[in-house]
Design a binder for these strands. Structure first.
Lengths: 362, 362
DNA sequence: CTGAAAGCGCTAACAA
DNA sequence: TTGTTAGCGCTTTCAG
């Protein structure tokens, strides 16, 4: 059995000062003379003292924990998108001396049975909700009076701070890339278009065309699919190719659909990028492995998590009431699905812009 | 700002009893008359009372947390193997009223800088270590006197309770399946063969052949690769096929290598399963998607996590000193890489055995 | 700049 | 079966 570990009392005795002085030192709060500070720290080191979390928690009414809410299906999907967001948050949490309590929720939400225990037990100082979740869930959690940060998700009307992908900027970069390559007839393939992130990508597509004096043609747009999977991308592409005049390039709302598009193009006896160039969004792991390798908009997943946590910690520390939206820049990765081999070899990346935090307009 | 939440004191007052009675009721410990029990519970419900975790922690010297240690590269890999183990553990944790504190560690381990803070701060009641990690890390963690449970990992010599895949049983099922199909020349493709789990699969392969009166032929064995990825599988298969006489079936140490084998077989102008049948191990997501679909040994990932947590909780609750090894059964999934189309249609699964917990031999 | 004292909300002997 | 009484180890006023 382990020996009794030193308490703040032991440190105080050894250092010849009072408990509160030690407390001030380890919390780097308040004024302590440099001399006693050093003395205390020395003793802390010698004794291998570490304050006990429960005791601090009880006294300070903080838990040192951040709750992390994730939809179960999001978390366990093969593409480690949310896993990486979590990882980014966990890293940042360590730096900021927080623990993360991860819990998954189902698609349906029952307030009575599904409220995470850490909210009930006052065991989190803040909450990160990653990805699209049931709105009733967000409402319900809000009542606990704990700061909430949304990551890769936003709620209209309701105002929550959030960290989101620069969807619009990414879409603009993608479409601009196609325009630069000389394409005039650029299609859009999307699905689940209610999703705020995805509709932004669609808007970015339309804006960019208009900005370049091109008309947005309904015949080049396929957004009826509910899901954004490979099969849905293939279906959409099939419909686009059915028209007599079809686009020479397609911007897909995500990589899965883009890959579906490429499959369908091949199926139809056409080639990518010679007959139809394709750009995706997300840069999932598969995208660098498919043939041809997919040009896409890279999303910095860990960065989303890291920023989510850091913004949340700021809110907790300052009890700032400001609602902030942080835009995480993306990067266009030019690969073979838009370029010929020679050019693909020298592909470059272009960043959508600097990270940017904006106060939500009232 | 949220209203002050009720404390145990409020409940006691309302219920007309003492604090300790309330405490006894909510901890379902000790003897309380059914009558007062009901009265207290009623008040608890009315007031929406929930004990504060920090306070319980301080008083009871328990944190209510379980630490979950995972190697970073294991966690963020595309195949959600460890994600699922975690998920299984998280589910079980909820049922048992524990929180999980997940933290990742790098491959290298520096005791001074990499010791999880939750150990230092006495903030976990137990530890789950999932997957192969640095041994020095395990040694180091052991000193904190916190119960440790290994999942999908084992340490020879050192004795820790663990929950592991029935690797041997799975291997036997795989090889037996091939024997049943009439194969006599069965190869083995492996890598990272130091890994305890993988070497067990290799042993299972050899045992099964011997049990059936067949000789283990070195020319049919390829285990020199360091990694067990697709490319390594392909390389190994290439070498096997280079021999004049090559096996008609191959058992690969995992699905990644098995898929590599199939690619190489195709590359060589041969067919699976007609020319060379292939069986894998793990049943990763990809295995049901490749062409032909891969016969493999399914591993119940969530189950590993769930059992890991439950065994750990048992240890915590009973402070039982017994070292137990729990074997999680696997299932052979028969698909097209070993069967012809007709038989693949009626494929069945065979389980390796019941879940089994054995006391470690001294 | 430092110390004394009063809890934070709960559990756990020990009495009753 | 229930109540009383000490703390658990730390933070946080408030004096000094």
């Amino acid at each position: 059995v382990a020996l009794k570990r030193p308490t703040i009392k032991d440190v105080a005795r050894q250092a010849g000062c009072s408990l509160s002085t030690v407390s001030l030192v380890i919390n780097t709060s308040g004024y302590v003379s440099e001399e006693t500070r050093k003395r205390v720290l020395k003793v802390v080191r010698e004794l291998g003292y570490h304050p006990t979390r429960s005791a601090r928690g009880l006294a300070s009414r903080t838990s040192g924990n951040i709750g992390f809410i994730l939809r179960e299906d999001h978390f366990s999907q093969a593409e480690p998108f949310y896993t990486k967001i979590f990882l980014g948050a966990e890293f940042a949490a360590r730096e900021h001396h927080y623990y993360i309590l991860l819990t998954t929720v189902g698609n349906r939400f029952n307030e009575r049975t599904d409220t995470p225990r850490f909210l009930l037990e006052r065991n989190v100082d803040g909450l990160i909700i990653a990805g699209k979740v049931n709105l009733r869930l967000v409402d319900s959690f809000e009542r606990f009076g704990v700061p909430i940060m949304l990551v890769d998700f936003q709620v209209k009307g309701k105002r929550f701070s959030s960290v989101v992908i620069d969807n619009r900027g990414g879409a603009r970069a993608a479409v601009t890339h196609l325009l630069d390559l000389g394409h005039k007839n650029i299609g859009f393939v999307g699905g689940d278009i209610e999703h705020p992130s995805l509709s932004e990508r669609f808007e970015g597509y339309q804006e960019t065309l208009r900005d370049h004096g091109l008309e947005v043609q309904q015949a080049f747009i396929e957004i009826r699919e509910r899901d954004t999977r490979i099969a849905n991308g293939a279906e959409s592409m099939k419909r686009l190719l059915a028209h007599a005049r079809h686009p020479t390039a397609v911007f897909a709302v995500n990589d899965a659909m883009a890959i579906g598009c490429m499959r369908q193009i091949k199926e139809a006896g056409l080639r990518t990028p010679e007959d139809v160039a394709v750009v995706g969004f997300d840069d999932i792991e598969m995208s660098a492995l498919v043939e041809p390798r997919l040009t896409t908009v890279h999303v910095h997943k860990e960065e989303l998590g890291r920023l989510g946590l850091e913004r949340l910690v700021e809110i907790i520390d300052t009890t700032s009431p400001k609602i902030l939206t942080t835009l995480v820049p993306v990067e266009l990765i030019e690969r073979e699905s838009t370029l010929d081999r020679e050019r693909a070899g020298t592909s470059t990346a272009s960043v959508s812009g600097a990270e940017e935090t904006v106060e939500q307009p009232a």
